[in-house]
Nucleic acid binder design. Structure first.
Length: 135
DNA sequence: ATATTGACCTTTT
DNA sequence: AAAAAGGCCAATA
């Protein structure tokens, strides 16, 4: 089964990375992509998560994967196809104590400064370099 | 079989 | 400052 060994590895890597997200924290698709070693493929991360809770035995599904903790880089829950889906995700996030604000257009925004989880991947890129613009 | 879409991100106007 | 374009590749049409 599976498509290719490469694709399967990517799926599993993504699921593992998502499982690393602490409870009550969120991260972005792009960061997950970086963690698995493919910073240029954030969209495929979404493809992987889309497969998750739908079919229990369709593909490498894993109910232990907290897909809800993955949002886009703007700190907004991805609207996805149906508006209800984002609401479900927002509800799940609130259940973890994450504050999700609803915009006028139904945009579900999360404060990345508070709930964002972005561990640095690079081994030794910057050490004593003080970042002054952080917020 | 080819063509378009999409739970996105970065770089470039 | 905001908007457009490019890129990526599995899944769907």
């Amino acid at each position: 089964m599976a498509r290719s060994n490469e694709a399967e590895a990517f799926f599993y890597a993504v699921y593992s990375a998502v499982q690393e997200i602490p409870y009550g924290k969120v991260t972005s698709y792009g960061h997950i992509a970086k963690l698995v070693g493919f910073p240029e493929r954030p969209r495929q991360v979404g493809v992987c998560l889309k497969h998750l809770p739908i079919d229990p035995q369709a593909r490498h599904n894993n109910y232990n994967v907290p897909w809800q903790r993955v949002i886009n880089s703007k700190g907004v829950v991805s609207p996805r196809s149906q508006p209800s889906g984002s609401q479900i995700q927002a509800t799940a996030l609130r259940a973890e104590g994450i504050s999700v604000q609803t915009g006028a257009l139904g945009e579900l925004t999360v404060d990345l400064a508070e709930y964002g989880w972005f561990p640095r991947v690079l081994p030794s890129a910057v050490d004593e370099d003080d970042d002054m613009s952080e917020q």
